[in-house]
Every structure is written in structure tokens, then in C-alpha cells.
């Protein structure tokens, strides 16, 4: 079983990240997933998060308690959720938006300039898809094919190609980061 938290600020598509990963793994990668979100009076700009439990069997307890993977796309979200990350967990951040403290325990940190890449592709709104590509590459939690297959219905149809491009960009960057890690 793997517990994942996606976090950032409202408007970045953080809930969408949980939905894409949850749908991809459950429908196309043969896993069981439960996606929950903090459902409150959150507004654009404030901290927001979605939670995903991934399991080989049916997910019984549906909430995360000690996540193995934390994705943070904002400083506020990082500070709020980093303390709950497992000591041997994986931390994934937007390089330009999050300043990390010195690493704790055996936590592995992976950083991607997702917002910058998205802007280079023409629209910062797809930063979450760059992040999803990167997340898929470094965590190997699912296949990139499944993630991309999950997109129709979750992103506007007319932007599907752009979203896939963003995903690929993040995924390639993730593979590159893993290569570098290996050669060190």
C-alpha cells in the first residue's frame, strides 16, 4: 500500500493530480485506489491537497496517515505537510516555488521546475501535468501510458494535446534526473 499527498495552492490543479493518478492506476494499471480531497471553503490561492491511497487489494481504510510520497507545488503546502512525510519517503517539489529545509531522515527529494516548463510550453496552467509526468518517472508508481490514458474527461478536450506534451516534458525530465542520480 502506498499513501500519496498532492499539495499546492488552489487553482494549480492539485485535486486534478489526485484524480489523474487515481483513475490511471485504478482503471489502467490494475491497482485499487481511493482519492479524497480536503473539502472546505478553500479558495484559489490558499493551501489545498488531495490524497491518494494505492493498493494491490481493495482499499479499506480510505485515508492517508503517514504518506510515503508528498508532492508540493507551493511553499505553504510544503511547510504544512512535510512533517507528516515518512522518514524514508519521497518528496517531490516545484523547484522554483519551494525552498526546502535540510533533508530529514532518508527522505529523497526530487525537484522539477514544473511551472517554468509549463510557461515555456505556453501556459502555466499545465504545470500540474508537468508535475504528473515527473512524478510518474521518479516514483514509478504507474506507467506513463496509463496516466495519459486517464486524461480524457479530466482535462478540457481542446487542451488534451497540450496536457500530454506537458506530461511528456515532465516525464523526460524525471528520467533525466534519475539517470543523473545513478551516475553519481
Amino acid at each position: 500500500m502506498t499513501e500519496i499527498r498532492f499539495s499546492g495552492f488552489g487553482g494549480q490543479g492539485i485535486i486534478r493530480c489526485g484524480l489523474i493518478a487515481g483513475k490511471a492506476l485504478a482503471l489502467f494499471d490494475n491497482k485499487h485506489t481511493t482519492m479524497t480531497q480536503s473539502f472546505g471553503p478553500e479558495a484559489r490561492g490558499s493551501a489545498c491537497s488531495s490524497q491518494l491511497v494505492v493498493s494491490e487489494d481493495r482499499v479499506l481504510y480510505p485515508y492517508i496517515t503517514k504518506p510515503e510520497i508528498l508532492v508540493s507545488m507551493s511553499q505553504e503546502a510544503y511547510e504544512k505537510y512535510e512533517p507528516e512525510l515518512r522518514e524514508d519517503g519521497i518528496l517531490i517539489i516545484d523547484k522554483d516555488l519551494v525552498n526546502t529545509k535540510p533533508p530529514r531522515g532518508k527522505i529523497k527529494t526530487y525537484a522539477v521546475p514544473s511551472t517554468r516548463f509549463a510557461e515555456e510550453l505556453g501556459n502555466r496552467i499545465i504545470a500540474n501535468l508537468v508535475m504528473m509526468g515527473f512524478f510518474t518517472a521518479v516514483t514509478k508508481i504507474g506507467t506513463p501510458e496509463a496516466m495519459k490514458k486517464a486524461l480524457p474527461g479530466l482535462v478540457p478536450e481542446r487542451f488534451l494535446d497540450l496536457n500530454i506534451k506537458a506530461f511528456d516534458k515532465g516525464y523526460e525530465y524525471g528520467l533525466h534526473v534519475l539517470d543523473e542520480e545513478k551516475s553519481h
Binding site: G18, L19, G22, K23, A26, L27, H32, T33, T34, M35, T36, Q37, F39, V59, P62
Partner: peptide
């Protein structure tokens, strides 16, 4: 309830 109502699963 709200939890099941807003929870996503297959």
C-alpha cells in the same frame, strides 16, 4: 455521507 459522497474510486 460527505466522505463517501466526495470520495473517488473505481
Amino acid at each position: 455521507d460527505e466522505c463517501v459522497g466526495h470520495m473517488h474510486e473505481k
